[in-house]
Amino acid sequence: MPKKKSQAAASFTRIIDERYAIPKRKGGGSVKIEAWADTAGNIVKYNIAYINHALFMGDNGRVIGYDNAHDYHHRHHFGDIFPVEDFTTYEEIVERFERDIAEYLT
């Protein structure tokens, strides 16, 4: 039986849905960025990931990622999950992600 969306989740609108292929000469893989906003325009849900099955097969190939699924902000790193206890803004998480993936992109 399919899960019902809560009324709150039903009012979220996906405002970012981007995918970028990383050329093999730069390290390969892809970057996926998704974000949803509430009716006031606040980002309430997000998923940012660097996926590269050549580097890591687990966690659907997610090498590095950030999201706030399961009701808390957390970071994925080669299958391990760490809470982001000093979360401030979505924009700051995007900056962290960009710094994190820089070491994998040549």
Score class of each variant (00 low, 15 high):
residue 16 I to N: 04
residue 17 D to S: 13
residue 17 D to A: 13
residue 18 E to D: 15
residue 20 Y to N: 12
residue 22 I to R: 03
residue 22 I to Y: 01
residue 22 I to G: 03
residue 23 P to Y: 00
residue 27 G to Y: 03
residue 28 G to H: 06
residue 29 G to V: 09
residue 29 G to M: 09
residue 29 G to E: 12
residue 31 V to E: 12
residue 31 V to A: 10
residue 31 V to S: 10
residue 32 K to Y: 07
residue 32 K to L: 12
residue 32 K to N: 12
residue 32 K to A: 13
residue 35 A to P: 05
residue 36 W to H: 14
residue 36 W to Q: 14
residue 36 W to M: 14
residue 37 A to K: 10
residue 38 D to N: 15
residue 38 D to K: 10
residue 38 D to L: 12
residue 39 T to I: 04
residue 40 A to G: 07
residue 40 A to P: 02
residue 40 A to R: 08
residue 41 G to L: 08
residue 42 N to I: 12
residue 43 I to K: 08
residue 44 V to T: 15
residue 44 V to N: 14
residue 46 Y to A: 03
residue 46 Y to R: 00
residue 48 I to N: 07
residue 49 A to I: 02
residue 49 A to T: 04
residue 49 A to H: 05
residue 50 Y to K: 05
residue 51 I to P: 08
residue 52 N to L: 02
residue 52 N to K: 01
residue 56 F to H: 14
residue 56 F to A: 09
residue 57 M to H: 09
residue 57 M to L: 11
residue 58 G to P: 02
residue 59 D to Q: 08
residue 59 D to M: 04
residue 62 R to N: 11
residue 62 R to K: 11
residue 64 I to L: 01
residue 64 I to P: 00
residue 65 G to L: 09
residue 66 Y to R: 02
residue 66 Y to S: 04
residue 67 D to Q: 01
residue 67 D to K: 01
residue 67 D to T: 01
residue 67 D to I: 00
residue 68 N to F: 03
residue 68 N to V: 04
residue 69 A to S: 15
residue 69 A to K: 14
residue 69 A to R: 13
residue 70 H to F: 11
residue 70 H to G: 08
residue 73 H to M: 02
residue 73 H to V: 04
residue 73 H to N: 05
residue 73 H to P: 01
residue 77 H to A: 12
residue 77 H to D: 14
residue 77 H to L: 13
residue 78 F to L: 13
residue 78 F to I: 09
residue 79 G to V: 07
residue 79 G to W: 10
residue 80 D to V: 10
residue 81 I to Q: 01
residue 82 F to P: 02
residue 82 F to I: 11
residue 83 P to G: 01
residue 83 P to I: 01
residue 85 E to Q: 13
residue 87 F to M: 10
residue 88 T to I: 15
residue 89 T to Q: 07
residue 90 Y to F: 10
residue 91 E to R: 07
residue 91 E to Y: 04
residue 91 E to A: 13
residue 92 E to I: 12
residue 93 I to G: 04
residue 93 I to V: 11
residue 93 I to F: 02
residue 96 R to A: 11
residue 98 E to G: 00
residue 99 R to Y: 05
residue 100 D to P: 00
residue 100 D to M: 01
residue 101 I to V: 00
residue 102 A to R: 03
residue 102 A to F: 00
residue 103 E to D: 01
residue 103 E to M: 00
residue 103 E to W: 00
